[in-house]
Nucleic acid binder design. Structure first.
Lengths: 241, 241
DNA sequence: CGCCAGCTTTCTGTATACATTTCTAAAAAC
DNA sequence: GTTTTTAGAAATGTATACAGAAAGCTGGCG
């Protein structure tokens, strides 16, 4: 009892100054695990286990899970706890339709406002992404791919849209975890470098078209007919009658 | 102690069957109050007071406040509690820029998919809105105006976008509470009927252009130079020196 | 008369206890 | 041997206690 209290105090003094509240840190840890496909869609997230792992009470865990639920990365069913979301095919299509509407349309503003420094930073992300891809660190590659899109959109300067796109990219990671084929990730990686070239040339139409194509390709590469994400249908799987 | 417990049990049996959890009901109550400008931007929202009013513990209130904070309707500052958000001018512009990007673009899908029944339902909302406006029920008028946009966008069938627009409309209500002039609400009301006409004709370009104009007018009508939302500047107000 | 120090009050942050629900599995009935 | 029932275990929903931070207030001092 008392040692728990001490632990709490020690943590609060050691971690809060590092700029992130405990909530935020735990949120990011779980978010990262979901985005990087280390937590599979459908995985259960019991509050007690997470409390133990992170060394906080269920109160804090619940707060984090509720936030993740509002962002559609986690599904909370009343009295049944939380699990990593399993986006439906419809949801996947809606998410990409939203991205295809928003992201290409923002390329004009991005092109107009982007600075050389920002282009270099984007290039750096792409390089890291490629490296991660080549060295087989799939998780990092996925994270970096999502970061590329968010960092790109942020250049336009509209924080509301940036935040929306950030959410859509994380949801996309989950969607790729469920419906992605080998190709999906390939598209994510290969292309990003090209876009930087178009931005350097100031070709806003080209950038917009590129983005439209890029997102469409990812959407196309998804395999919605493979295993339904819900309950596995054993009759289909084992071909019994 | 025991009577509190009893109260809890009685409520849970009486209210949950009505389809809404207590959380959800309280969330909607506060949301409605914010959207309808009955809770002014900047108003403090102490957990204890709300607990008393709604007859639940702070646990439930906190959950609701955190949700509202993620939706940017409430600002939670660590150790300082919650208050109704006071969107900045920048935020207001970003919100409307997002709406101007999304909503007109969706009119094509809406036009293609809308049914007569849905048009009648929309007309009903507009009628109620006008009635509320004429009888001076400003609060209801604002609510109905926001509902019109959400219900309209929902016709396109993209749930992701519908939810994003729903959030943007509630944020818009807050923005209008801060920066709105008399005109703002006028635009909201007067025009919605026109759009239904265009939809009946199947004029998707017209509907899109109308929506663009509509949102631009509201944005134009905002008065950003009036009192900064932060701390009131008494020197300016009282013209001392 | 105004200003600041220190106390008091109020409110938030977190942990924890307890009630309720759900899930599991063993036992009983068919 | 299969199904149903029912006790037990485990996990969630909510309330509450307590610690800590911020705001307000009073008394003393300049």
């Amino acid at each position: 009892m008392s040692n728990r209290s001490n632990t709490q105090h020690m943590l609060s003094r050691a971690e809060v100054p590092r700029g992130l509240s405990r909530d935020e840190q735990i949120y990011r840890d779980i978010l990262e695990a979901v985005v990087e496909h280390r937590l599979a869609p459908g995985a259960r997230l019991p509050e007690d286990s997470l409390s133990d792992v992170f060394g906080v009470s269920r109160t804090v865990i619940r707060k984090v899970l509720q936030r993740l639920a509002l962002e559609k990365l986690v599904l909370i069913r009343p009295n049944r706890g939380a699990q990593v979301a399993q986006p439906s095919a419809k949801e996947a299509q809606d998410v990409f339709a939203a991205r295809i509407l928003i992201e290409p349309a923002m390329m004009a503003d991005v092109c107009r406002r982007v600075t050389d420094t920002q282009l270099d930073q984007l290039q750096q992300v792409v390089d890291e992404e490629r490296l991660a891809q080549q060295t087989g660190r799939q998780s990092d590659a996925i994270s970096l791919s999502a970061r590329f899109h968010v960092q790109l959109l942020a250049i336009a300067g509209n924080e509301v849209i940036t935040e929306q796109v950030a959410q859509l990219t994380t949801r996309s990671s989950l969607i790729i975890a469920v419906y992605g084929s080998r190709n999906s990730v390939g598209y994510e990686c290969g292309g990003h470098g090209e876009l930087i070239g178009l931005l350097r040339l100031g070709d806003d139409k080209g950038a917009s078209a590129w983005m439209h194509r890029h997102l469409s390709q990812i959407l196309e590469s998804l395999e919605f007919d493979l295993g339904a994400p819900g309950t596995p249908d054993f009759h289909t799987i084992f071909q019994r009658k």
